[in-house]
Structure formats: structure tokens, C-alpha cells
């Protein structure tokens, strides 16, 4: 099937199997391997990307369902050499260790801050519930997201820039 979408601001058009998951499309067809796969039950959130600015687990969506939409992956978040404020906050506050959950966690956090620019700690914890991390115990992830909020990180990403 034909699918046509924008990925990180770039037009993409491909012929894909109808059963191809969006995450496999991004990784295997577009070569954007920053989006990781951590489970097979849509539980872990490692594959979280933004679709029209909102966080989506890209294993829950078929590539063909993204037709006509705007997808942002971790590769599209930084502004050239300048990290996005959420990426910067994760680095500053040691919000990552092995880094495997990180692309999904960062995208979920970006989406969270777009919806709630000034969340409480409890709101951050609830808001990131769909993203699992096995290394950090979440302490520094939560700290990073709160610090990013403080620094005014909320800015629309991936929605018609």
C-alpha cells in the first residue's frame, strides 16, 4: 500500500506491507533507528514518537495509519547541534543510564509538557506511566522533566512547524 507522510519535516512516500507497524517503518524503511523497540504488548513506551504533536507508541499504529500525518522521532527533536530543552535537562540531571528507554521517554516528556507546561511531581509521574525505565528508578527522569518545565521547555514540536 502507498503511504505518504512527513517524518521530521521531510516528505516520505513508500509502498509498504499493510501489516507493517509504524515503528518498523521508521526503523527499517526510513532508517531512523533512534526509536527503540522494548516489548511486544505496547507496554514499555520505548517506541514513543509524536504524531501530529501528540505522543503515540509507534508499535500501536500501522504505517498506513500514519498516512498524511506528521511524525517526529527523537532524531527530529534537537535543533541542529542544540539539544531540545528536555534532552538537555535529561543530560543535566542524569535522567538516563543505558539510554534504551530514553528516546521514548524524552518524546513522552515533550508531549506531557506540551499538554501541561507546569506539572506537579505527581502529574509527571502519572504522565510518564506508559514508559518503563529499568535503570534510573525514575527519580532523575522526574527531576529532569520538572527542571525542563521550569526552564519553559513546552513548545510545540512536530505540529505544523
Amino acid at each position: 500500500m502507498q503511504v505518504s507522510l512527513r517524518v521530521n519535516g521531510e516528505e516520505r512516500r513508500h509502498d509498504v506491507e499493510p501489516r507493517l507497524l509504524l515503528v518498523h517503518y521508521l526503523r527499517d524503511v526510513c532508517g531512523l533507528t533512534g526509536t527503540n523497540i522494548g516489548c511486544d504488548t505496547s507496554s514499555c513506551g520505548a517506541c514513543t514518537v509524536l504524531v501530529d504533536g501528540e505522543s503515540v507508541k509507534s508499535c500501536t499504529m500501522l504505517a498506513v495509519q500514519a498516512d498524511g500525518r506528521e511524525v517526529t522521532t527523537i532524531e527530529g527533536l534537537a535543533d541542529g547541534e542544540r539539544l531540545h530543552p528536555v534532552q538537555e535537562a535529561f543530560r543535566e540531571h542524569h535522567g538516563l543510564q543505558c539510554g534504551y528507554c530514553t528516546p521514548g521517554m524524552v518524546m513522552a516528556a515533550v508531549s506531557l509538557l506540551n499538554e501541561h507546561p507546569h506539572p506537579t511531581e505527581a502529574e509527571v509521574r502519572e504522565g510518564l506511566e506508559g514508559n518503563l525505565c529499568r535503570c534510573t528508578g525514575y527519580h532523575n527522569i522526574v527531576k529532569a522533566v520538572l527542571a525542563a518545565a521550569e526552564a519553559g521547555a513546552s513548545q510545540p514540536v512536530g505540529a505544523a512547524r
Binding site: 527503540n36 538516563l96 528516546p103
Partner: peptide, 21 residues
């Protein structure tokens, strides 16, 4: 000190096993 490992992991540049083609 902040970690030198982080920029690649935060931007999707890091290569995990499944990323190798």
C-alpha cells in the same frame, strides 16, 4: 561530571544491536 555517553543516547545516534544493518 555530566556523562559523555549521553548526547548519542539522547539523540538516537547510539547504535544498539537491533540498529545494526
Amino acid at each position: 561530571l555530566r556523562r559523555r555517553e549521553d548526547p548519542a543516547l539522547l539523540t538516537g545516534e547510539a547504535r544498539f544491536l537491533a540498529d545494526l544493518q
